[in-house]
Computed example of a mutant assay.
Amino acid sequence: MADFERIAFVASETRDAVDACAALVKRYGNAPPAEADAIVALGGDGLMLQTMHNHMHSRIPIYGMNRGSVGFLLNDYKKNRLKERLAAAEITVIHPLRMTVRDVKGAAHEALAINEVSLFRQIHQAAKLKIAVDGTTRMGELICDGVLVATPAGSTAYNLSAHGPILPITAPLLTLTPISPFRPRRWRGALLPNDAHVLIEALEPDKRPVSAVADHTEFRNVASVEIAEASSIDIFMMFDPGHTLAERILAEQFGY
């Protein structure tokens, strides 16, 4: 059983999160994140996502406690026995997506996404997109509000709202989900192997401008977007036994 003597705390700006952080720091101290055995994030799912982005390359496990609203990615908040909870926690390893954007001026941009990479129409006109998977064109023209590629961890977020499938957290899959498709009207998307390389090109980008978003990083007026799993990056999420992310995703499919 690992020792968790050095704990780093981060909190959102809400009063509940700030007060909880102060109480925990008083009891357990507050190590610099780079020297910590674990990072404890206090807030909602947004704060947890931000914390994972901020420490994506550190390989330090992150344990979230809910001091926000939704808390799908978080454990229950309790002040007592935190070190024992950390020692008993189960770890889920996830990998982000790497988004490489080329804009209409030819400039390249890159960002990482834990949940999903999304493309959206920028104006009143629908986007026209072309989709290739591993070098083969699979959709010559998709007229839609947008499209997204989601990880298993992100499949219960925006992807689910767009009627995409929920993926078990350990499934070696990505989901490709259209957002309000107009043509082909009945296309519901596709499941892809997690090592797939997806290329999405904007057709008529001057007339129908498109933006691309990796979680909360946005680039506008894109010409093409390449998406692939960044399998070399490991993010370690910690959950109390019986309340793992795998269990939560499974439960979500049954409506509770």
Rank of each mutant, 00 (worst) to 15 (best):
A127P: 07
K79C: 07
V70S: 15
K105R: 08
E116F: 05
N75V: 11
H124G: 11
R98Y: 10
E116N: 03
L82P: 07
L74N: 05
A87R: 15
V70R: 02
I131V: 13
T92Y: 09
E110K: 01
H124Y: 08
K78V: 05
R102D: 00
H109C: 01
Y77A: 00
A89L: 08
L74C: 09
T92F: 03
V101S: 02
H95A: 15
I131T: 06
L86T: 09
V70C: 13
A113P: 07
L112W: 03
Y77S: 07
A132V: 13
V70E: 12
A127I: 12
A87H: 04
K105G: 14
M99R: 01
H124A: 04
V104T: 11
R98G: 01
G71W: 03
I91Y: 13
L73H: 13
K128C: 12
R102Y: 01
E84L: 02
K83A: 00
A88W: 05
K83G: 06
A87C: 10
E110I: 00
I114Q: 02
L97N: 14
L119V: 10
R98S: 05
T92S: 15
A89D: 08
M99V: 03
I114E: 09
L119P: 06
L74F: 06
L74K: 12
A107Q: 03
L82F: 04
S118G: 07
A88E: 08
D76I: 07
A113G: 09
A132E: 14
L97T: 11
P96H: 03
Y77C: 00
E84R: 15
A126K: 13
R102T: 02
H109D: 02
V93D: 11
K105Q: 14
V117I: 09
R121A: 10
I131G: 02
N75A: 14
E110S: 01
V101R: 03
K78H: 14
L73E: 14
A88Y: 04
A127Y: 05
N75S: 13
V70Q: 09
A89R: 00
S118M: 05
A108S: 13
L74W: 14
A88F: 09
N115V: 06
A111E: 00
